[in-house]
């Protein structure tokens, strides 16, 4: 048997294939937007705006990707984000410190992660139900804290919020002659760090491969000596903590708390992960794909707005159409591959 050629190229794995498709489509779509719609798409700031607006979505999606790779689901992420925003805003307004608020955000995320992870892994309850309850709990607690919108009135925080990373090289000169550098918020840096962290975790750390193993075949993973329960527990902890971070980033972006913050974010996050090539059945997915999934999703929305479809319904109808396209594409690609085998 000619099995000794280690350097033979392996065919793309499902993860890589789905991610590549997404990246190609994203690039093509963006290029088309640059050519046809022009306007904002010609400026790098457009991408930075997309990142600024969606930093917290990216973070949440990363956590969700981890859970989904482990064949779970966490639909509480948006609600936890919202709860974190509201709690931190109230905490800051009642004389809390910045360090304290960061700590609070992480604790809330961790608490939700632990509670949900415990119920799902150790008591063997269906993840959908547990995280649905978590979502209700977080949403309910948010409104118990305050039904009315709250603005942060904390000087230190205002200063922190206003920190922007300016990149002159990617700036442009506005029609009125002013030079505007590309601006990136701190939250984006946090989001990028999260991506790098999760990427390394999934690829090079024992625990990360464990997520793939339990998602691929839970029974096998157990037989292979992986502590399935603990691994699953940790996947929800990661998702919970990332929701906490996402909440803080959200607050840095908006500077206010509102009971309807991050409404529907869980579904956007699931959509991002799916577009990025994560399968809900588990075992397949990649956090880079999720990042591009989020960008693709956002770009579609931007394109709809820029093409002058101003009626309020077009944005989500196109998003739905696009989602449909990606889902069908994945299905066709995966079915064809499976049939070949």
């Amino acid at each position: 048997m000619k099995n000794n050629n280690r350097y033979q190229r392996e065919p793309l794995t499902d993860t890589q294939l789905l991610m590549s498709i997404t990246i190609v489509i994203f690039v093509v779509m963006y290029l088309l937007a640059m050519i046809i719609l022009q306007g904002g798409f010609l400026h790098p700031q457009q991408i930075f705006d997309m990142l600024n607006d969606n930093a917290s979505l990216i973070i949440v999606s990363c956590g969700l990707t981890v859970v989904m790779i482990g064949a779970g689901i966490d639909i509480s992420v948006g609600a936890v984000t919202s709860l974190v925003v509201m709690s931190c805003v109230m905490y800051l307004n009642n004389g809390g410190s910045i360090a304290g608020s960061v700590f609070l955000a992480l604790c809330i995320g961790l608490a939700f992660g632990m509670m949900q992870g415990f119920l799902i892994s150790y008591l063997d309850i269906q993840p959908f139900i547990v995280t649905l309850a978590g979502m209700f709990l977080a949403r309910g607690m948010t409104t118990i804290l305050s039904v009315n919108p709250q603005k942060v009135e904390h000087e230190g925080f205002a200063a922190l919020r206003s920190i922007k990373i300016e990149i002159n090289a990617l700036g442009y000169t506005a029609p009125n002659g002013n030079f505007i550098p590309a601006r990136m918020e701190l939250g984006v840096v946090v989001a990028l760090l999260c991506i790098v962290f999760i990427f390394i975790l999934l690829k090079y750390i024992r625990l990360g491969r464990g997520f793939y193993a339990i998602g691929g075949n839970q029974q096998s993973a157990l037989m292979l000596g992986i502590n399935v329960k603990r691994t699953r527990f940790l996947s929800y902890i990661i998702s919970g903590v990332l929701s906490g971070i996402s909440g803080y980033v959200f607050m840095m972006h908006t500077g206010a708390g509102n009971a309807t913050n991050a409404a529907g974010m869980e579904m956007n996050a699931i959509a991002s992960s799916i577009i990025g090539g994560t399968l809900l059945t588990g075992g397949v997915g990649n956090v880079l794909g999720t990042f591009f999934g989020t960008l693709t999703l956002t770009t579609i929305k931007k394109i709809v707005v820029s093409s002058g479809l101003n009626d309020p319904w077009w944005q989500s109808i196109t998003t739905g159409g696009m989602l449909c396209f990606f889902i069908l594409l994945q299905s066709v690609v995966l079915n064809r591959r499976n049939r070949k085998k």
Binding site: M267, W313, Q315, I317, T318, G320, G321, L323, I327
Partner: peptide, 9 residues
Amino acid sequence: LILYTCGRS
């Protein structure tokens, strides 16, 4: 999820 996203619109 598709219809969930765009149904109300």
